[in-house]
Structures are given as structure tokens and as C-alpha cells.
Design a binder for these strands. Sequence first.
DNA 1: TAGATAAGTTAGACACGTCTAACTTTTTGA
DNA 2: TCAAAAAGTTAGACGTGTCTAACTTATCTA
Lengths: 153, 153
Amino acid sequence: MSSGASQTREDFTPDSRDPEAQADGFAHVRNAHESEMAEDYVELIAELIEAHGEARPVDIAERLGVKAPTVTKNISRLKVAGLVRREKYRSIFLTDRGQALAEACRRRHRIVVAFLQSLGIDEVTAERDAEGIEHHVSEATLIAFENHIKGSD
Amino acid sequence: MSSGASQTREDFTPDSRDPEAQADGFAHVRNAHESEMAEDYVELIAELIEAHGEARPVDIAERLGVKAPTVTKNISRLKVAGLVRREKYRSIFLTDRGQALAEACRRRHRIVVAFLQSLGIDEVTAERDAEGIEHHVSEATLIAFENHIKGSD
DNA sequence: TAGATAAGTTAGACACGTCTAACTTTTTGA
DNA sequence: TCAAAAAGTTAGACGTGTCTAACTTATCTA
């Protein structure tokens, strides 16, 4: 994070936003964090179902880089939220609401990745950065990304 | 999140990444989350010091949209991390390490905001989205953003 | 100067997402 | 068919970041 040419001290003149607008920005970030786990899980579950006909906790854990009990607990949360269907020790499936969310997330993910790649970013970096960025782009920003991708084709 | 023209179901063919690469992406997101609070706080503290000569918990709480006890607790964590200096009931100041982190974060924030605005995104949306995006851009992505800003001037 | 007000801290609680250890259930293969 | 292996769950713990309630300390003003 130190690619700036000059060594001048970064200026901390506040942005034009008043404290309320700034607080709104942080509230948006917290809101995004609240739905982040669900979004990542349903997208991954949809991917596993497409590839293997079912989603198993062991596969979810592997791809998220977490332990199995973490997945079990989070799947329970998603069930309570009405996003997944599954019985104990059985494979995981998405509800209609879960499927709709997964599709929206997948679409958003692809736009962000394609956008980053259109800037010359390599695929590995684009995918990795997109994993975090995707949760913080508004609809307006997504449209701007799409327009930019079309313009650079 | 439904600006796609056609109503076709989103395709869930997995990306080319193997499970390990995918797990690496999520690990990056978790790492980013771990430093996010510290980054937001030191940048905000630097801004308040520049504007008012000091940072007070009441002002930090207002701008973050959280309650005062949350700030008190988090400031204690930043002290333990060696990023701030302050005694009980006294104003908050940054250590050299905190100042360096604040400068790096401020610079990154400005690049992300300028970049989003260069895509035609309005300032309010750019600032709000940048609040979350900034924690997930790698150095390579930041450089690509900078290059794009220069190219569109 | 002293009371009122504002600011700050502490205690305890909560939800979230993570882990290890220990257990239960399912699947596999000899 | 049964033991082994793999997968899955439960219990309990932890750290993080949030809150309310109650308290302490600093500042302000009459």
C-alpha cells in the first residue's frame, strides 16, 4: 500500500461529507457484512448442486477454508432464514428464495470479476479481490461496471 | 440486483479455480475483515485531529454511527495494537504506526473514490461504496485503478 | 463555587463466525 | 455383515463488534 511516487504526507482534509453521511456509509458496510455469509454460502451451494447434484458440508468447508462445525452452524442459520432446505445428515438444497439470491450473487460476482479483468488485472487477483468487493457494490456501481465492460469490448 | 436484460437462469458452472484457490479467496476476505475496524478508526482519528487538533470518542461515535461504549472498547484494542496513544478520559492521538496506517488507508480510499467517480458514479454513491470496497482491493488492483484514472483524464 | 450537562467508562449481554474435542450417523469396503 | 473410515453434529470456548444500563469524570454555566 505504498505505491505513491512522492513521500509527502497524506492530506487528511475531511471529505465533503457531513458526519451523518459518513455514518450512513459505515452503516452500509455493516449491513453488507450481515448478509455476506449468506450470500457466499448460497452461491457456493448452487455451484456445488450444479456440479454434483447436491451440496455437502465437507465440500462447502473445503471451498470456504473453514472447519465442518462452522458450516453446520451456518447452514442452520440459513435454514432459519429460509434460504436452504435440508434435514440432519442429509444433503443441502436451496429454497426458491435461496436460489434467487444465489443467482443474483453469481451475476454480481461475474460482473465484478469481468470488470476487474477488463482493467488488466489477472484472473487470480480479480477472483480473489472480487470475493470481498462484490458485497460492497451498489446497483448503480454494478451498472457502471457493466457499462465499462461493454465500452472496452 | 436484477438489471440483466433477459430472465434466463444464472449459470452456476464453477469458475476455473480449484477448491484451494477458492478457499484462499475467502481467507483473504476474513483477513481483510480483521483489519477493517482498525483501518476505519485510524483514518477517522487522523481526519478529526487534522480538523480539530484532537479526536474525541463522541465525534468518532457520531461519524461511525455507533454508540460511545463501542468506541471506548475499540480504542482500547487499538492501544493494545500500538496504533493509538491516549489516557483515560483524554483525547486520542495516533502513534507513528497508526499515522502510517492512516495515511496508507486515506490514500487508498481516495484512489477508490476517484476511480468510481471516473466511471460516472456520483460522489455520494462513490464514497459510500468505497467505504466497503477499499478493504478488499489488493495492491495490484489499486495500481490498475490509478492507471485507469490517469488514462481517463 | 456548585449544580447541571456532556462526555467517557465499565459491566454485562447479545449475535456472529470461528475453533477443538467428543460424539453420532452414514458410507465404504473387506 | 461388520469394522473402518468418512462425514456430520453437538458442546463449549473464543474473539469481535455491537448494544443498554449504570456509573464516573470532565466541562460548562449561573
